[in-house]
Design a protein around this nucleic acid. Sequence first.
DNA 1: CAGTGGTCTAGACCACTGG
DNA 2: CAGTGGTCTAGACCACTGC
Lengths: 286, 286
Amino acid sequence: MIAICFEVRAPADKPVASMSVSSPPSGGNANTDASESGMPAGATGTAAFSPLYQQIKALMLQSLQSGEWKPSHAIPSEQDLAARYKVSQGTVRKAIDELAAENLVVRRQGKGTFVATHAERHIQYRFLRLVPNSDSPAEEQPAQRRIIDCKRSRASAEIAKTLCLRAGDAVFQVRRVLSFAGSPTILEDLWLPATPFKGLTADRLNSYDGAMYALFETEFGVRMVRAEEKIKAVLPDAEQSNLLQIDGHTPLLSVERTAFTYNDLPMELRRGLYLTDKHFYRNTLN
Amino acid sequence: MIAICFEVRAPADKPVASMSVSSPPSGGNANTDASESGMPAGATGTAAFSPLYQQIKALMLQSLQSGEWKPSHAIPSEQDLAARYKVSQGTVRKAIDELAAENLVVRRQGKGTFVATHAERHIQYRFLRLVPNSDSPAEEQPAQRRIIDCKRSRASAEIAKTLCLRAGDAVFQVRRVLSFAGSPTILEDLWLPATPFKGLTADRLNSYDGAMYALFETEFGVRMVRAEEKIKAVLPDAEQSNLLQIDGHTPLLSVERTAFTYNDLPMELRRGLYLTDKHFYRNTLN
DNA sequence: CAGTGGTCTAGACCACTGG
DNA sequence: CAGTGGTCTAGACCACTGC
């Protein structure tokens, strides 16, 4: 269930190998030669058949995480990609479809396909599910952010585990408060691996105008792609209740989020306390 | 934001009209004649162009909600559907793709496409996001269910509003407790419109072996397809803490769920109180 | 083996965007 | 207007299921 560090979930890496795909346009497809390309002949169990479009998707994924295609920029057109990978347009289309479904890429008819980004996305706070009660006055949009603390420290065993580090490795630890309409509503503690976020300071966090994930993206080249949250109901301790300006008997939502970059690599642990008197956490089930 | 009763979200209803689709296989597609089929010529603003596969999807949706295709049964093969609707297989495929993405239908290679169901789905509790803490012992799967109450009553203004009824309309009101490993963990109050659920009793709820949504499906022909949840942190009142065997200072997750059938018609309001000492609410963000 | 969904292609045309 | 994504088709072949 839990992703093991550096172990990519998606297959389509071994069975590709000779991905020049100089498949002759002889009628149907060409994937049959997989039986003589990557298959070790004595492969135990599953044959690990991977459709062409999955392989193209994997290649595109590499272009995304290598930085060849940068956030908010357009990727090559479907035509170009088809030529580049020597497949039909329909096949790259299906690959792009999946990338779009995972929000890694955004299609815009008539314009092109663009690398998704946390910045310039004016619906700010892509991962925040807290919305004002329906009886609230208007859209009290602009949240005030206050950085309480930003320090370098050592990862505890637990933090290290979820961030795929070793206990004692350097991490940044950030604490901040978000207020809506002047009311402190969210208290967050963040842990970030020190290496990719080298140079992070409270000042940089304060001076940046935009969501924190946008900052990570533009300043550190770290794109959060997916996240998992564990939610509980808790009571605050003295310090927490003080920061949120509430008493110790006010129940709060505890939202523990692990955010991932490409390849399901965890890059952030965030523990939030949400005050839910004027807001609620919204979720949609399919 | 909030779905208005009986107002279908999906378009593709007006612009179809003459959906016999006797489009001659003359080269490309045939949707161009939409300009002389449903378009009122002086249509204000958007042209409401609806691709063929969306129209096919709408037709299939009708077959689903009319009961022509029953839960857990196979729908016609893609070939058959293509013939029936007089379109290519690729087009019905795209329609089915969307239905599958919405969990209305399940594809099984080599076997066929089946109408999704809450029953026979051995991963029981499709909408329940509560999972045991990772440090918990094993998979303490079988939840004990206890119906506290099941009575007929009148909808309050608020209940009526979310269920698209009028205040005072008859509703069923159910209260139950779910226990895991002997510990009361969830206290739920449900409101159901009386008409579709005519004949519901505590006995029927108790004697049914399976998820409640499976019962709704098999006994009343009501298929829940989608749900929205609003989550807050709360403290229990005296009666609630008594039923959950906790004290009044234990914070709980309040999960208010509205479940919808086809056409975004709300058919259930459920207010759950979750004890989150040994469990947490899990969510995935994309 | 036949039947079903899944992949792939090649080509045509449509809708949308921007110069 | 050219370029891009979006739709549709017709046909071939593959992978999986079950008889």
